[in-house]
Simulated scan of single mutants.
Amino acid sequence: MSKYLLNKFLFTVDRDADLVERYREDPAGTVAWWEAEEANRLLNCVATEQSTWLAFDDEERAALAGHDYPKLFELGAHPFLTLTLFIAMFERDYEEPLGFQLEYARKLAHFSLPYPDIST
């Protein structure tokens, strides 16, 4: 398991409006593409500099492909990164103000202190 890679996925997808839409419409395909093409690209480096060993495990891949943010939180994904990305994807589906944020809070309500470790 790599909390770093989970957070890197959430961070990079959230910063590209086209990727946000792609992830909303085709989560499994986006996760597979991102893992193959982007996971080993070093942040803030030229495209040719890459690592070779980063990959999601099956549990991480399933949580990302299923938009399962409670599971991502349990796995140690940073809650701010999950919240901002999932707001971008799903807030439009709610009519009431803060609709998605309230749903997010409801689905994470079963967690109590201490929360899962989010350090990388």
Rank of each mutant, 00 (worst) to 15 (best):
residue 24 R to I: 02
residue 25 E to Q: 15
residue 28 A to W: 03
residue 107 K to W: 01
residue 7 N to L: 09
residue 34 W to P: 03
residue 74 E to I: 01
residue 104 Y to D: 05
residue 53 W to Q: 09
residue 87 I to K: 15
residue 116 P to L: 06
residue 9 F to C: 07
residue 74 E to V: 00
residue 17 A to H: 12
residue 110 H to C: 03
residue 3 K to R: 14
residue 74 E to F: 00
residue 87 I to C: 05
residue 19 L to Q: 15
residue 48 T to M: 10
residue 85 L to D: 01
residue 56 F to M: 08
residue 112 S to N: 11
residue 22 R to A: 14
residue 94 Y to Q: 01
residue 64 L to H: 04
residue 115 Y to S: 12
residue 24 R to P: 01
residue 93 D to W: 11
residue 33 W to Y: 15
residue 47 A to F: 08
residue 105 A to H: 07
residue 114 P to I: 02
residue 14 D to E: 14
residue 24 R to A: 06
residue 30 T to M: 14
residue 12 T to C: 13
residue 50 Q to N: 11
residue 120 T to V: 12
residue 90 F to R: 07
residue 12 T to I: 12
residue 13 V to Q: 05
residue 116 P to H: 06
residue 103 E to M: 07
residue 109 A to C: 04
residue 89 M to N: 05
residue 61 R to N: 02
residue 85 L to H: 05
residue 11 F to I: 10
residue 5 L to I: 04
residue 108 L to N: 04
residue 65 A to I: 06
residue 62 A to T: 06
residue 90 F to P: 03
residue 5 L to E: 03
residue 52 T to A: 11
residue 19 L to I: 08
residue 26 D to R: 14
residue 87 I to T: 10
residue 94 Y to C: 01
residue 67 H to Q: 10
residue 27 P to R: 08
residue 42 L to N: 05
residue 52 T to I: 09
residue 12 T to D: 13
residue 15 R to P: 07
residue 48 T to Q: 10
residue 75 L to G: 00
residue 109 A to M: 00
residue 27 P to H: 04
residue 98 L to I: 05
residue 41 R to H: 13
residue 30 T to N: 12
residue 71 K to T: 06
residue 34 W to E: 07
residue 108 L to W: 04
residue 31 V to G: 04
residue 46 V to H: 12
residue 13 V to N: 03
residue 104 Y to K: 02
residue 73 F to P: 01
residue 53 W to L: 10
residue 116 P to K: 04
residue 44 N to T: 11
residue 83 L to Y: 14
residue 117 D to I: 03
residue 38 E to K: 15
residue 96 E to H: 10
residue 44 N to F: 14
residue 66 G to L: 02
residue 28 A to C: 04
residue 8 K to G: 08
residue 77 A to E: 02
residue 100 F to G: 01
residue 99 G to R: 01
residue 68 D to E: 05
residue 51 S to V: 07
residue 80 F to Y: 13
residue 80 F to G: 15
residue 13 V to M: 02
residue 75 L to K: 00
residue 30 T to I: 08
residue 113 L to N: 12
residue 41 R to T: 10
residue 116 P to D: 04
residue 68 D to S: 04
residue 20 V to N: 07
residue 69 Y to R: 08
residue 44 N to E: 13
residue 70 P to I: 00
residue 63 A to F: 00
residue 65 A to R: 10
residue 117 D to T: 05
residue 32 A to T: 14
residue 98 L to W: 10
residue 60 E to C: 06
residue 78 H to G: 09
residue 71 K to M: 05
residue 103 E to F: 06
residue 85 L to Q: 02
residue 78 H to E: 12
residue 110 H to V: 03
residue 97 P to M: 05
residue 68 D to K: 01
residue 75 L to T: 00
residue 113 L to S: 12
residue 84 T to G: 02
